[in-house]
Amino acid sequence: MAFSHSFEYFRPGTLAEALSLLDQYKGDARLLAGGTDLAVHIKENMATPPVVIDVKRVTDFPGSRVSPKALYLNASTTFSDIVNHADLRKAYPMLWEAARSVASVGIRNRATLAGNICSAVPSLDVAPALLCYDAIVHVASSSGTREISIHDWFISPRKTACLGTEIMLGISITAPAVKHSGIYLKQGRYRGEDLAQAGLGVLITSDLQYRLAYCAVGPIPFRARAIEAVLNGKVLTAELISSAKAMVQDTVHPITDIRSSKEYRLHICEVMLERGLKAVEQRLNGAEFDSAEILGG
């Protein structure tokens, strides 16, 4: 397809260079990482930036580190980097599962976690994981760096707290101090690559703390704190799960769109909650299974 839009292209080698370009072109520049979103947006005239700054060759982003206690993934990290990281899979299964559910290999080889988070679409698969792990987003501008809690990151569909003069450096996560496990459940229209009709991340700790976050069922991904409050400190029982499920209708406010009706989304949110809680408890106790099967494949 031909582009009716032309732009100027820059490929900085350092963060300082990238930031100075960003300052120079102010609101006219868009950052290009994997490009799997931006290329489509430019083709379809949804984005018409006069300047594109390719940050893939920036060599001085702080390095990624993965340990069971903490994790830092820099802006160069692709989804394939996450999917192929055995230690990450073990320590942060929810994040791993979310990354694996994004598109397909040929996209994951290119698309970055940073680019994805900055896209801030409502169906953002990794958002529930980041919300459950209380991630911090690290950004830099020419006047310095700052940390933004993931809970303050999503403003509205496709809008984040990151300013136009800032570049995302990476995200960090500190794991809960006690034994914990997580799971990401994604409901799509079929088993193959799809955008989520609904997504749920569930994190559980050995001291019975629960964290729940939904995506694709509201304008931005969110933590279901009211439901967490009902669960916290309690052992999972059928009754407890029932009372948690009963809260879904008041907690989740989805819309009807091409991918799903509002009614089905609400229904699925309940099913996900029940199955997610049961599955994550099993996983905490050492069970091994493929989360893609939890909702019927």
Partner: peptide
């Protein structure tokens, strides 16, 4: 047409 693309007109993949 609301779904003039493979993002929302789902044709089967190898997983299906």
């Amino acid at each position: 047409l609301l779904n003039p693309n493979f993002t929302d007109y789902k044709i089967p993949t190898a997983m299906d």
